[in-house]
Design a binder for these strands. Structure first.
Length: 439
RNA sequence: GCGGCCUUAGCUCAGUUGGUUAGAGCAUUAGAUUGUGAUUCUAAGGGUCGCGGGUUCGAAUCCCGUAGGCCGCCCCA
């Protein structure tokens, strides 16, 4: 039986599964289009160096990487960001701003499988380049939320946590921390939700036990869950950068409320997105029940394009993986039955009738109807059964009796009624049925 | 990289203290039904019991190894 298995962590999409996947992609694509994003794609295989430059040498352990026949070190793409940065960086001078792009692509990571995570997966990636202000965050967060809401998910189902690495750096700077210490504190902040007090161990190893007063301030700051709380926390510290940053926060949250999306967004300074390349606002989407891993993540990464050797360009982006998202839809009963059904099933008497039926079948198909017929001669009873199971709305009956009279019998499979029409009126009758009956 | 549980038909699962030819439901195909569909009845196809080794007169069953799956830790771009 199992002569060959698929590789661990890889997925196969039988028609049902592919129909569900396509449904997700269709709505994502449609939503991105309504926001004025343009779709792009790029190679699955990239130079290994592209990812090392962005994420460091350690990344190789988590990549599908190998040496190709030309001696090049290559890797299957684990993410889209470096690639899209190259695309934008190469043609930066020729691209109209703002650059609003998206892609739906497959990615590969050499990882251990878990719920919502495999070695290959699809992601919707959307990015805005060339806009340094919070207008870019506004547009992207709105798109992210709409990409979920399009499926019928509501604020009861998911929410987006918003945080800000700049705000953290300015705050820690105002508290007198240098950059290495600030980074260590942020790393602790990132892990605090999971590890609790242990999150500060790494900091202690590098810089000695953390000052208790400082720690108290950090913990208080990371538990801020609203703009007013943030404002009052910052009000106590006279700092120009912090004040300016707060203005950005008001603007971004104000924009999202004006769009009617405020209910989806929560201030949560506990989110800092790991050691990532993010430089400003960061956000993550989660299911409300807290049962699944992150649904989406994104943020601003203004220095990455420069790091890859191009002129600096501001950038904000997010990615949504298909696996966790599909789990959420399933949990909420929003996975649609998307089986594509037949429009017309043609019942054919015998060999002679077949030739006549074929001509009409082909012309109906040319008109865009989905038409099926039995590949081999089978009994009428079977054919009607097959017609019912196919989901067809109409059955056309090409029997010897009808053709002798120059007519075709058309059966409305839903209403269980039949009419006979002259053969030359078959196409128009079918067309009328579907244009009149459908909407 | 580490840990827990699991693996018998396409799917969901039975399978007695180790004992003849490994079963059921669903699904598939065919027949009842050579001109009218979602019901019903009948039958068929489909398995080297994940793979390899060991114990035994005899292994789906016990032991060892290994692969794969699920879940969690680490990580999560």
């Amino acid at each position: 039986m199992a002569q060959f298995q698929s590789l661990p962590g890889f997925r196969e999409f039988y028609p049902d599964a592919l129909a569900r996947r396509n449904h997700i992609f269709r709505l994502w694509r449609q939503t991105a289009n309504t926001y004025g994003f343009q779709e792009y794609d790029a190679p699955v295989l990239e130079p290994l160096e592209l990812y090392k430059t962005k994420s460091g040498d350690e990344i190789e352990a988590q990549l599908f990487s190998f040496t190709d026949k030309g001696g090049r070190e290559v890797a299957l793409r684990p993410e889209m960001t470096p690639t899209v940065c190259r695309l934008v960086g190469e043609k930066a001078n020729a691209l109209k701003r703002p650059i609003k792009w998206f892609s739906i692509a497959e990615f590969y990571r050499y990882e251990r499988m878990q719920k919502g995570r495999g070695r290959c997966f699809f992601q919707l990636n959307a990015d805005i380049f060339g806009e340094a202000g919070v207008e870019a965050e506004t547009e992207l967060m709105a798109l992210l939320i709409q990409c979920f809401a399009s499926f019928g998910l509501t604020e009861e189902d998911f929410y987006v946590r918003l945080s800000d690495r700049n705000l953290w750096f300015f705050y820690l700077e105002a508290l007198g921390l240098d950059e290495p210490r600030s980074r260590a504190v942020l790393s602790a902040v990132d892990r605090f939700e999971k590890l609790g007090e242990d999150a500060f161990k790494d900091y202690a190893e590098q810089f000695g036990a953390i000052d208790l007063e400082l720690k108290a301030k950090v913990l208080a700051f990371l538990q801020i869950k609203s703009l007013p709380a943030l404002e009052s926390a910052v009000a106590a510290i006279p700092d120009e950068k912090l004040g300016a940053r707060l203005a950005d926060w008001r603007k971004l949250l104000g924009n999202l409320s004006a769009m009617g999306l405020g209910r989806f967004v929560e201030v949560d300074l506990g989110v800092v997105r790991g050691l990532a390349y993010y430089t400003g606002f960061v956000f993550e989407a989660f299911d409300r029940k807290g049962e699944l891993r992150a649904l989406a993540g994104g943020g601003r990464y203004d220095s990455l394009i420069g790091k890859l050797g191009y002129n600096d360009m501001p950038a904000v982006g997010f990615g949504v993986g298909d696996m966790t998202f599909a789990l959420l839809l399933e949990q909420r009963g929003l996975t649609p039955a998307v089986a594509q059904s037949t429009d017309v099933y043609v019942v054919i008497g015998g060999g002679a009738e077949r030739a006549v039926a074929f001509a009409d079948i082909q012309s109906l198909r040319a008109d865009g109807f989905r038409v099926e017929y039995p590949l081999k001669e089978v009994a009428f009873g079977k054919q009607f059964k097959a017609a019912g199971e196919s989901g067809a709305k109409l059955a056309l009956i090409y029997g010897g009796d009808e053709l002798a009279k120059g007519v075709v019998k058309i059966r409305d499979l839903g209403a269980r009624t039949e009419i006979e029409v002259p053969r030359e009126q078959v196409a128009s009758t079918v067309r009328d049925f579907f244009s009149g009956g459908a909407e």
